[in-house]
Design a binder for these strands. Sequence first.
DNA 1: ATGAAAGCGCTAACAG
DNA 2: CTGTTAGCGCTTTCAT
Lengths: 341, 341
Amino acid sequence: MNIKEIAKKAGVSVATVSRVLNHPESVASDTKERILTVIKESEYTPNWFARGLNFNKTNTIALLIPNILNPGYMEIAKGVEDVAHQKDYTTLLCNGENDVSKERRYADSLIKRRVDGIVLVSSLLEDEDVELIKKQGIPVVLIGENRNISDVSIVRIDCQGAAYKAVRHLIDIGYRDIAIIYGDTPEIENMRKLEGYRHALSEEGIPDREELILVAPNTVEGGYIAAKKLIDMEKRPRAIFASSDLLAFGVIDAMKDFGLKVPEEIAVMGFDNIRMSNLIEPKLTTVEKPMHKMGVLGARLLFDLMDSKEEEDSANREILLQSKLKIRKSCGHRERIGEIF
Amino acid sequence: MNIKEIAKKAGVSVATVSRVLNHPESVASDTKERILTVIKESEYTPNWFARGLNFNKTNTIALLIPNILNPGYMEIAKGVEDVAHQKDYTTLLCNGENDVSKERRYADSLIKRRVDGIVLVSSLLEDEDVELIKKQGIPVVLIGENRNISDVSIVRIDCQGAAYKAVRHLIDIGYRDIAIIYGDTPEIENMRKLEGYRHALSEEGIPDREELILVAPNTVEGGYIAAKKLIDMEKRPRAIFASSDLLAFGVIDAMKDFGLKVPEEIAVMGFDNIRMSNLIEPKLTTVEKPMHKMGVLGARLLFDLMDSKEEEDSANREILLQSKLKIRKSCGHRERIGEIF
DNA sequence: ATGAAAGCGCTAACAG
DNA sequence: CTGTTAGCGCTTTCAT
């Protein structure tokens, strides 16, 4: 069923049919109605490709995230989708699986598909990849820091500052032997968290103990295994700062399996404040990362870029969000409960 | 940059360029190479729309799920995506948000976009909606039961049987006052679970206590609130069967808040076996629903349909999966540990 | 207000 | 092996 058949059935030219579809105001209301009924009866849907060929616009944005099984990323996705949906855009959700080559394949495919814009979340892509995309006239925004991409608009949080405050809190409530387990991905953000950790310790004159600094796959299992190493140490730490809640869950699980009480025998601090973090036992003290908001702001930024594509104000924008400490049970606490900053 | 310019630069006709793109074997290797370099240098990407206009195929399937924040659904999504990616298809992930009208909007948009196939997960759509899609020549498969759609291929699990076994287990280990909290979505599946619950009780001659049957929004919060009602009862139940792990998490959280020990004072059974269910305290006894597998099988089914679109073997197929009980701590237990069936 | 016709960029017969 | 050309279905001047 195509526009020609509709035109014939309605006894008009294709141009008129096209007009009622695109500029209905410019068609006499009786012909318009006639055509409209024919369209309805014939269950006619204008061919997407033919339209696209003329408009060269897809009304689609893409969202490339590292892992759809990670609830944090899905909250970001929800934020992006919320604003896209509101603007009547479809969003293509792509699962990069923390694999550069897979991300690259997606990027290619997205360029081909001529999406109108791309949001990259904690991407592993590099400057050249992004350059390629932008060269095709497709705006890009990053959510979350990335070592390899510089020339791009971004929304991110102050990881270092947040980690600093988290460790600072641990110190404030009396801990000194503090370990850190940081995830392997996203790399840069975790390096920043490590810096924040080091900063807090050194500020307090606490000597570095390199064996207390562990990397792990950013999963529950990763946390478990790393925690096991810490447990087996002769000089076991009294507190553990995990760079994500998922890791922290693994840590707490290990503590249970090996009979160590949290927080009485060992304190655990997370990062992200995903939904589950106040459902596990003990409820997790963690850094609240405003995921949904990051998604929303990222999408808005992207739409801004898309609207102003032609103009010259191509300066990259950067949105920096702060995160708050969410104090619950897993670290023990004195008088202060709730959000302290 | 279009095919014409490439042709000119390479000193050949557009047909030849098109050939190296689609049937490279039919082009002399020296001309081919020349053209290829021009393409590379010019960073030329064939226009997706023009191609689509000829092929009338998008290499895209769509996946419509009720809630991207629900980890169970994302596991299904992962399954679908895995097989699609392997076949070099892109998958469009749409978030219906348990809202029929939103789902309908998506369905419309997907028809327009001429996706090659659609997987509906626990959809709220009705037969007519699906009819509309199929009439456009787009194959559809359902994952999870649905009251309103009958004429379609489907992969599902035996909810009633699974619920029966779950409650049966509760009875076997000594409970008689068993409440059920079932989620409002997906409706049909939860009705089946309710039937399974009733069946198990009546089989044992345990009288129905209607006040022990509660509906709730299928979220952690929903479980919490429903559990609160149960706690406040004069004749409080000794066990609670929740129709999803999310609900069960809410239930357990409520028990903690109100000082009831699980399972000593009250047993809690979940459904789904999502990743978190063995991380909470106590580890959740639950029904293992093979989400990823459902996604994989659903996608395979869809590709089968897509391949045989023209042929007449349009009989709907149905794949019925069984689920296993995953016995952990939250219900207490006698000798049996592990999977019993 | 409506129609005729020229593209949009690409593919695939058909000829050579 | 390669070029010419007729569409694919739609939008949009340009006439009328």
